[in-house]
Amino acid sequence: MIEQLGIKEIVLESAKEVFETMIFMDITETAEPDSDIEGWAILGLITFRGAMEGCLAICCSTPCAQTISMNMLGIDSAEQVSEADTCDAIGEVANMIVGRVKKHLAETVGNIEISIPSVVNGREIKNNLGNDAELVTAKVNIEDKYVAKLSMLYRKSSK
């Protein structure tokens, strides 16, 4: 039943709304193969539980994350954005996307409770929720300059 809800469409629509409203950037889904973001990357992650449990993440290269944080803060120079600012911004992007996803899911699956954001900075970052979890991924072009990966791991609540 959960598969019929169009989770990928919900995640993409939610991300588009966040990018257009708060980051002032357009995103479009790209047909690039589903691979990890190459090089140093930053991943913003939110876990959730309730009617469904799992996590939603956005992963992008460090330069992409810097540009996102610069746009969110209205800053022109990358030198004015600290690593902490960049990590914080990516966590907030994940937070806002999952907030919109939660609103959609409340009408179909039920309520989910969401965590505060976690941010990981590193290489070849992967999520895992066990074999019984569904994984939805979508790669998006950001202003035709960067690629970011949206992913949502989820399963029906075991409770």
Partner: peptide
């Protein structure tokens, strides 16, 4: 000002004494 936007939560926090609610993302 929150990503949480369920009507139940909004009603609850208004009943507790909040005067308004803005959902993230905002303008």
């Amino acid at each position: 000002v929150s990503t949480e936007s369920s009507q139940e939560l909004i009603d609850s926090v208004i009943a507790d004494g909040a005067n308004g609610f803005i959902c993230k993302p905002f303008t």
